[in-house]
Design a protein around this nucleic acid. Structure first.
Lengths: 190, 190
DNA sequence: GTCTATACCAAGATAGAC
DNA sequence: GTCTATCTTGGTATAGAC
């Protein structure tokens, strides 16, 4: 039962699929992207496509992981986590299809049976911990109110960022990132 | 060509469908609830069920409208809109199926082609206007910081409430309503 | 009691997941 | 190819306005 791992060709194809999937989804949204269409776009049969990821759910989970990695690579280590969150929200405004993928997927994976449920559980835990640490650091150097509860503010910041992405799909006048900035600014006083 | 309006029988059936739909969704989630199953639960064929609502999307839109009305009826006119939002978030914690329906639906209806898109556009506009008015009222009687921008805070409060419902599906320690309360409390200072 | 919109069903077209 | 899902087509039966 020696497990052999992916061949170089498979790794390359995997990456091609992810980047193509991102492109197609960004153009036409998540719900309208079928595995059939995606398969055609990368020159594979449906079975061939699913061979790499096992299921549609896992494929989209991989797309989101790739996006997280791209965000991390793009933003570097200059900003603290709260500022990064703002930068990502700002950047996302230019990629509506991806926003829809993230929103739809994070919502439907709320079902513990969903293939990507654990991915989001871990992602949210990691994000909350990092944001809470950033809140504490800001409180220590006096740039955030000490009345704020770090854990609750961490949860709040994620909620704001998720919720703004949903609202932004419905003729929202304000820029989502500006609303988030306003919150951080108000939390700085006091 | 005179349009005759629904018969008494139809009105009753419509209500039965809405309440049964809520029940079924609460038990097994939104995505796993098919029109076939729903039709069986109310003793109709699929075509008979769709006769009332036209499409699955419109049916679930009707469920959400009914929930909004129930919330309004239950809460009365004692509370101002911000407090009502908190009360609804608190109440929703007891109806997990509804939370999933609302989250999933509000997300996938982000597509302008979606049957319920206009419903959410109007709902968000109405909510934002009401919340902004409440912010201004609080600023006038000194219970909210005048540094807060009423429009942005209105958008923010909705985002928080939507985002918390998503996060609550992923092993969130804090009570969503407590996080919202914490925000309102912090906005009161200053 | 007539008439027609409403209430409902059987079968199938279409399309996506796998 | 198979299975499952939404929704359409083309009907019959009945409620209830006149």
């Amino acid at each position: 039962m020696a497990t052999r791992g992916p061949y170089a060709k498979g790794v390359a194809k995997r990456e091609e699929i992810l980047s193509k999937a991102l492109e197609v989804i960004a153009r036409q949204g998540y719900r309208k992207t079928s595995t059939r269409e995606l398969a055609a776009a990368v020159g594979l049969s449906e079975a061939g496509l699913l061979h790499y990821f096992g299921s549609k759910e896992k494929l989209f989970e991989a797309v989101l992981r790739a996006r997280d990695e791209a965000d991390t690579a793009r933003l570097g280590d200059e900003l603290d986590v709260i500022d990064k969150l703002g930068a990502v929200v700002r950047h996302n405004a230019d990629v509506p299809g991806l926003v829809q993928l993230y929103s739809t997927f994070s919502t439907e994976a709320g079902d513990p049976q969903h293939g990507a449920h654990e991915y989001f559980v871990e992602r949210y835990q990691r994000l909350r911990a990092a944001l809470a640490a950033s809140v504490r650091a800001r409180q220590a150097d006096g740039t955030m109110s000490t009345a704020a509860d770090p854990e609750k503010i961490a949860t709040l910041l994620i909620a704001v960022s998720d919720g703004l992405q949903i609202q932004s799909q419905y003729r929202l006048d304000a820029e989502p990132a500006d609303v988030l900035d306003h919150l951080v600014e108000l939390l700085g006083a006091g």
